[in-house]
Nucleic acid binder design. Structure first.
Lengths: 131, 131
DNA sequence: GTTAATGTATACTAAAAGCGTAAACAAAAA
DNA sequence: TTTTTGTTTACGCTTTTAGTATACATTAAC
């Protein structure tokens, strides 16, 4: 029922980068979040691959947002780190639906999909810019 | 971001008990859900302790609902098996708030609490009786 | 051009949680 | 009194989470 710590950290890291005028070094991010340098770097690499940030190498280098903060939602961040937002394993093809002959028949699956959709909408409406 | 399989199974088990006229044996529950007998028993013990079901021992014994199905919501079941519905570790006292001096200052905490509340409301409105 | 500060990539490991099993026991109906 | 059922406690395997270590590549500054 929870997002991972990594996703939580990712949100805070992006928040720090957003609030800084120039580029922010991994060291500075680590100090401000309290997350170890190594782990911060790992998360930053994922954020970079996902296209949220870009980096400038070498002395005085660091990270900066690649997209406007209005275009980054909590749902975007979470899904990139943790994978799809889904409230139950039921929504995976090899779980409940190996037991229920017709997938569309499973009323719980329907409910879980509906609830997951609402959560996703909620988190999609929350943009990095509003924090 | 997911409920555990145990919670998912618990929901399905209660659904089966609800739809049966008399008592239902653990064996029958296991067969109908596809969950092993032992694991079904483990879940049934939790559901019994939580007051959702009661049981009749001895030959021809089994389980039956202790409350009306209208009074059992998905939120009730999930919280009993998995613990409180909370979308982030941030909401635990020893996580983000060891880093933020004033808990109420942490804007992410507020957002996570709000989203968690919405999810809980959603799941609370879904009663076992409607399935 | 060299150096030092930075980011990149891959692999590894420890701890926790999730998932399920085993075995011995207790109760009660037939 | 036997058999069917539920109860309790402990154990163990597997997967995920969380974090670390090492070696390498890039580039700005001097």
């Amino acid at each position: 029922m929870k997002i991972t710590r990594e996703a939580d950290y990712a949100i805070r890291i992006l928040y720090i980068i957003k609030n800084e005028s120039g580029v922010v070094s991994a060291r500075e991010i680590s100090e401000k979040t309290g997350v170890s340098l190594r782990f911060s770097l790992k998360i930053l690499a994922k954020l970079s691959e996902a296209g949220f940030v870009d980096s400038k190498k070498g002395a005085q280098g660091g990270y900066f947002l690649k997209k406007p903060a209005e275009d980054i939602s909590l749902a975007n961040i979470i899904e990139n780190i943790d994978g799809p937002i889904a409230i139950s394993h039921c929504m995976e093809d090899d779980f409940c639906c190996t037991r229920v002959s017709d997938k569309s028949e499973c009323s719980f699956r329907k409910v879980f999909c509906a609830v997951s959709g609402k959560i996703r909408n909620e988190l999609s409406s929350m943009k990095l810019s509003q924090f």
